[in-house]
Design a protein around this nucleic acid. Sequence first.
RNA 1: GGGCGCGUGGCUCAGCGGUAGAGCAUUCGCUUCACACGCGAGGGGUCGGUGGUUCGAUUCCACCCGCGCCCACCA
Length: 850
Amino acid sequence: MDGLQISLPDKPALEGLEAKWMARWDAEGTYRFDRDHARAEVFSIDTPPPTVSGSLHVGHVFSFTHTDVIARFQRMRGKVVFYPMGWDDNGLPTERRVQNYYGVRCDPSLPYDPSFQPPEKPGKHPISISRPNFIELCARLTVEDEQAFEALWRHLGLSVDWSRTYATIGKKAQKVSQTAFLRLLERGIAYQLEAPTLWDVDFRSAVAQAELEDREQDAAYHRIKFARTNGPAVEIETTRPELIPACVALVAHPDDERYQPLFGSEVYSPLFQVPVPVKAHALADPEKGSGIAMICTFGDLTDVTWWRELSLPVRAIVMPNGAFRAVTWDSPGWESRDAAHAQAAYDHLANLSAVKARVRIVELLRDSGDLVGEPRPIKHLVKFYEKGDRPLEIITSRQWFIKTMEFRGALLERGKQLRWHPEYMRHRYENWVNGLAGDWCISRQRFFGVPFPVWYPVHADGSTDHAHPIVPDESRLPIDPSTDVPDGYTHAQRNQPNGFVGDPDVMDTWATSSLTPQIAGDWLDDPDLFARVFPMDLRPQAHDIIRTWLFSTVLRSHLEHDSLPWANAAISGWVLDPDRKKMSKSKGNVVTPMALLEEHGSDGVRYWATSARPGTDTAFEPGQMKVGRRLAIKLLNAAKFALMQAEPRGPIIEPLDRGMLTSLSSLVKDATEKLESYDYAWVLTQTESFFWSFCDDYLELVKSRRYGDFTPQGAASANSAMLVALSTLLRLFAPYLPFVTEEVWSWWREGSVHRAPWPTPEEVVAEIGGADVNADPVFVVTKDALRAVRRVKALHKRAIKTPATAVLEKVRFEKMQPAMRDFQAAAHIRSLSFGDVQELELTFLDDSPA
RNA sequence: GGGCGCGUGGCUCAGCGGUAGAGCAUUCGCUUCACACGCGAGGGGUCGGUGGUUCGAUUCCACCCGCGCCCACCA
């Protein structure tokens, strides 16, 4: 640090630091990834791509800051940090937004129109456009969002390499997604099946188990009679009487003596008079309702199990849009012993939604006398698609699946190999894997997503041959089967007999997001890069998407690379509002992040975010941001003090200085270990605590000496010690408060603090020729004595500068002997002796009595 | 029903087998030459409850109560 060039502002301030340093970091490529390094030298991060068709909220700022602290720490430790940023623009939220914004609807049967331009304002009637046109509009709209997001992230100070961004709907992501899919298809791990599937009737799409949520709904138990030819009617209870026409059997527990005589016999459904068998199955619960249940195709997932295991027929009545379809009674599969009555009753239900059909059928059942008593209202949990408005139905359709059930053991093993921060989050993953109910349905009947890269031959009779999909060569990917043509066919053959048809579906958004390491690492187009970053070091994410994003990424990496996708998963919590509820847009309690950054400063907001323990849900607290802002201001001022008179400098010989630095070196040691294990909050707290004591105790104690009141050697020791401490503290704070630390660093050091090496305990003690265990107590005891003087003076309402004489307890007196002059000057003690006193006694030398 | 987390001063949270901590808020005092966006000091808690282990428990164990989240085949 010889020949320091120091340039101090007159009045340091935080205002404007974000703009100044954002621009500088960008211009100088401070955070650029340098790819010329081997895997061992790289620290790679699989960043969560935020959904761009919403807006960023405080929760994003919170968790992304945690990741940034780790990225900055690793960079300073000497790692080459691979820190890309993705945008999740793929999927339903964008689709909905584009429909409303431009007034368009996607019609995948239409051909691409290269000259299409959307109207200035959305018209009354939506314009139908092709899937490629629709996707172009999605891309156009999301670009604007992405720019706004990037601006916010830069303002927050994320040390992302902005030349490495990706979008989940981008060409690269589509290529990765389609290639990985085709490889799974070839290995038989991806397959399609016509089967009962969870279905959202508003989105008219299949959904996956991972996208379900339970919501409490009002419902009612209806006790319903099923007639028998010889004997009293059987009474069942159901919350969904409208599904009686879809009933295919009754079921009771095999050990249930009440119903054992009925097993194997037939009963007749009310109104429709359909003969259905009475079956036995262990899943039937004798305690529930009347102990005997009706099986419908399909009321819930248990029905699916029963239907499959008891080999029952299908009588499906709910159409993909949720309405009851028309049924001709006495046609095959719809046999009734009174078809005329069945038809008359059912005609009341056709084309109704489930809710309306329920009301109607209860009237019919009451009239026919098949309803026993009145419905008993209950509240119960019903499965919903997490983005949906109506309960899910189960509808039979052709869908694509990725096998997961047979890999459950391997996936549990992967979960054990992964290092979780905090450790207990592992349970959520294991819980989820253990609870998997079926393979992963990845197809969605939507448009803005990655298409399945397959076509099907069309037979001469016009029927589609789903069993023999036509796949493109990987070199053609990405493709859109709705516009691209399979090799060996012509455009004219689309949808024609002896021609082909494109798969109409798109992949679930997680089917693409589960490949973010491959997308960000440029798996296919830049295998050299991929080898330098994969498997990645860190996946940061929130705990609510362990079952989706984390799980599916582990699965895909296991299948494709036979490895974990990353070594560590750092799980962050949520931001809660003061009522302990998750902050979310729908609850209307979200503060816009940019306003927060402007009000409290990015460093202030980051301080709040990084004060939270990893994984912990945290209260939104502007008070903490103010504290962080004050800390940043204090840094400016303390640094100004240390630098305003940095001469003379020389060997650090004073025990007080050596003690302070010895203590700092042990902070550095602990901080490094804690950050290695992702405990960033602890490091911030401890560094902050050291820093305040450094300001309030150490700087006050050495003030007089450094101003030259004693010897030049003493001043030199203090000045040098202050600069070592400042340099060290700035680097410890740099990951947390990147703007203020960079500002202060720039006053007296070359280059960016964010490229400076992380401090080491060895480096600190080298400045004093090795750790000085004798000096440490000098610092501690002297600072305690200073505090004791302050306490006594405050107790007697004296200003700190009131002169006094002091008597100190003997041991203390001896221990702080080497720092006595500093102490007397700081505490304004004229003369000092030791004696038989508790701690210390003062005699004030002003007029008033002590 | 199963799992996980949490319950510490008015608030937000640390901590931890050995006589309770921080910040905010509050009260009192200080125009101290880095900082009034400042400085110093004080008051304030039987660490959810009950048992157990221990010389000693807020800290370990068991059970219970409360809050939150995740999961479950919720007729």
